[in-house]
Simulated assay, not measured.
Amino acid sequence: MHTVLTRGNAILAYSLSLLACLTFCCFVSTVFLDYRTEAKINTVKVLVKNVPDYGASREKHDLGFLTFDLQTNLTSLFNWNVKQLFLYLTAEYQTKDNVLNQVVLWDKIILRGENTVLDFKNMNTKYYFWDDGNGLRGNPNVTLTLSWNIVPNAGLLPSVFAYGSHSFKFPIDYSVSPV
Rank of each mutant, 00 (worst) to 15 (best):
M1K: 14
H2S: 15
H2F: 15
V4K: 14
V4R: 13
T6C: 11
T6M: 12
R7K: 10
N9M: 09
I11A: 14
L12R: 07
A13W: 14
A13K: 15
Y14M: 15
S15A: 15
L16F: 15
A20L: 10
A20R: 10
A20G: 12
A20H: 08
V31P: 08
F32N: 11
E38C: 11
L47V: 12
V48F: 00
V48H: 01
K49R: 15
K49A: 14
A56E: 12
A56V: 12
A56K: 13
S57M: 06
R58P: 01
E59F: 09
E59Y: 10
K60S: 07
H61K: 06
H61E: 02
G64D: 02
F65C: 07
F68C: 00
D69M: 01
L70T: 03
L70C: 03
N73S: 07
T75R: 04
S76L: 02
L77W: 03
N81R: 01
T90K: 10
E92L: 13
Y93Q: 02
T95V: 06
T95C: 07
L100N: 11
N101K: 12
V104E: 14
D107R: 11
I110P: 06
L111E: 15
G113E: 05
G113W: 02
E114V: 06
L118M: 07
L118N: 05
L118Y: 05
F120R: 06
F120T: 02
K121L: 04
N122K: 05
M123F: 03
M123V: 04
N124C: 03
K126H: 03
F129N: 05
D132T: 15
D132K: 15
N134S: 12
G138H: 00
G138S: 01
N141I: 04
V142Q: 01
L144T: 00
L144V: 00
T145I: 09
L146E: 05
P152G: 00
P152Q: 04
A154L: 09
L156W: 13
S159N: 14
V160N: 04
F161W: 05
Y163Q: 09
H166L: 02
S167Y: 08
F168Y: 05
F170Q: 11
I172S: 15
D173P: 04
D173H: 13
D173T: 13
P178N: 03
